[in-house]
């Protein structure tokens, strides 16, 4: 097999497992942009090491190993201790779920978008600060003049409400089908 074909084969496998890898990386970093960057880095390493990879071996554990190294690099670059769930534990159970796979995400994403649009203006403003301006809860609390605990509580309530709204919409969609 030529190197180009090998790279393409491995990248196809990478793509097929991207949901599981995204779940693993996001669970460890909790950083959207870092997650997308690390997924890009994994693709680079996969292509770089394609020639030495034994294609008879399962690819996902290899991808997960690369992902773990990239996550550790990410934390080293940030100069912070990684206060995340242990890698072994995440590797143990996150790949068992299909929650981040495209087939599961697509309809959920559309439903979530509709639910977010229904939020009251003040709550949408908080959402904007958290997810567009990427402020943390203490920065949001200073901006809106509420306690940090109040912001944690508000975000948790909003997310629970959004999940109920999404589940309801998906149930309705299922009923129509």
């Amino acid at each position: 097999m030529s190197e180009a074909v090998l790279i393409e084969t491995l990248l196809r496998r990478f793509y097929a497992n991207q949901g599981k890898l995204r779940g693993y990386v996001f669970s460890a970093t909790r950083d959207y942009h870092a997650t997308e960057d690390i997924l890009q880095e994994i693709a680079i390493v996969v292509a770089k090491k394609a020639s030495v990879y034994d294609t008879s071996r399962p690819a996902l554990p290899w991808f997960m190993g690369i992902a773990r190294n990239q996550i550790q690099r990410h934390y080293r670059a940030k100069g912070k201790d990684a206060l995340n769930i242990s890698y072994e534990l995440l590797e143990d159970f996150v790949p068992m779920f299909t929650s981040y796979d495209n087939d599961e995400i697509t309809e959920r994403q559309l439903a979530l978008k509709r639910c977010v649009e229904k939020l009251p203006q003040k709550q949408r403003h908080i959402m904007q600060m958290r997810y567009v301006e990427e402020l943390d809860c203490s920065q949001i609390s200073k901006t809106v003049g509420r306690s940090i605990q109040g912001i944690y509580g508000l975000l948790k309530r909003m997310k629970n409400g959004l999940r109920k709204c999404v589940d309801f919409q998906l149930q309705q969609l299922e009923a129509i089908k």
Partner: peptide, 13 residues
């Protein structure tokens, strides 16, 4: 996993 997926989706949308 569900909480993580919802958090990621909120960032994504």
């Amino acid at each position: 996993v569900a909480h993580g997926r919802d958090e990621w989706l909120l960032h994504h949308i």
